[in-house]
């Protein structure tokens, strides 16, 4: 099986995939627990507009996506304070704005529709050194920020008011979290595609939450499930000649189903033994 690694593109694919597998659930856990799961979707839709804008302007599309998503992140955070009781409304507004802008830009530049597919569905097997470099830099920023700010992120995610009273700069931490989400999606769209990025942020987290552990255990488990999905999905995709992005996400869904099934069987067995 190891012979596949003699190909440079396979090595790039695995390297890129593992970085994404690490950072997606890392940020995903915080946004799921803040009940902002849809934020990944909203920013992904914005990223499409960013990719299209990048292509029209002739800049690296991931940078276009990143800039537009950082802007959208700031807007979401602003709207979230305006609609305090309906935080999800901020996400819906940004999702619609991003998608409408994307449609306009796509119709303006018809010629690049094929390369756009690379970003819509991801194209892990064509990851270039330049892509890998960008993903690597974003990955390091995200991991370092989460490691350094883990206490703050935990407290703000658990209870904002108490965190504020304890001296945590809540507004800043919320802003950082949204910006990190934007960076994560920017890194992941080239790998799993904008349509599936938020799944990799949410599904491994949904799986690890089922195991009912403490916070840092849950975080580590989510990362492990995600890495397993990336490795398993990528190998399956290469050997069965399937779309890698889809296979990775589907693999993570299979892990979730396995864990859910295990829970059901456990509960049934426990019921019978009592």
């Amino acid at each position: 099986m190891l012979e596949i690694f003699q190909y440079g593109f396979i090595r790039h694919a695995f390297m890129g995939g593992l970085i994404i597998g690490l950072i997606c659930p890392l940020i995903g856990l915080f946004i799921v627990l803040k009940r902002l799961s849809m934020i990944g979707d909203a920013l992904s839709h914005v990223s499409l507009a960013g990719v299209a804008a990048g292509m029209i302007l002739g800049i690296y599309p991931v940078y276009g996506a990143l800039i537009l998503m950082l802007l959208a992140g700031l807007i979401i955070e602003r709207l979230r304070t305006t609609y305090q009781q309906y935080a999800e409304l901020a996400i819906a507004v940004v999702l619609s704005s991003g998608m409408s802008l994307a449609v306009i830009l796509l119709s303006a530049g018809r010629s690049f529709n094929t390369s756009l597919f690379t970003y819509l569905f991801g194209s892990i097997l064509t990851v270039s050194k330049h892509d890998l470099f960008t993903i690597g830099i974003l990955g390091v920023i995200i991991i370092a920020t989460v490691v350094f700010l883990r206490k703050e992120l935990f407290f703000v995610t658990f209870e904002e008011e108490a965190a504020r009273l304890a001296g945590v700069p809540v507004t800043l931490i919320n802003l950082i979290l949204i910006l990190l989400t934007a960076c994560t999606i920017a890194a992941a769209i080239r790998i799993v595609g904008m349509l599936l990025t938020s799944s990799l942020m949410v599904i491994p987290v949904a799986t690890s939450l089922q195991l009912k552990r403490g916070f840092y255990h849950t975080l580590i488990l989510a990362v492990l499930f995600s890495l397993l999905a990336v490795i398993g999905g990528l190998i399956l995709a290469i050997y069965l000649n399937l779309a890698p992005g889809g296979t990775i996400v589907f693999f993570s869904v299979l892990i979730l189903l396995f864990i859910l099934l295990r829970q059901v069987i456990q509960v049934k067995l426990l019921g019978r033994s009592q």
């Binding site: 627990l33 206490k151 935990f154 658990f158 304890a166 001296g167 690890s208 403490g214 916070f215 849950t218």
Partner: peptide, 21 residues
């Protein structure tokens, strides 16, 4: 439903004493 232990929740409030980073 938050995945946090009793200890983790109580320790979080020591933020000022522990300090950032």
């Amino acid at each position: 439903g938050f995945p946090a232990t009793v200890e983790e929740i109580v320790a979080a409030n020591l933020y000022r004493q522990v300090g950032p980073f």
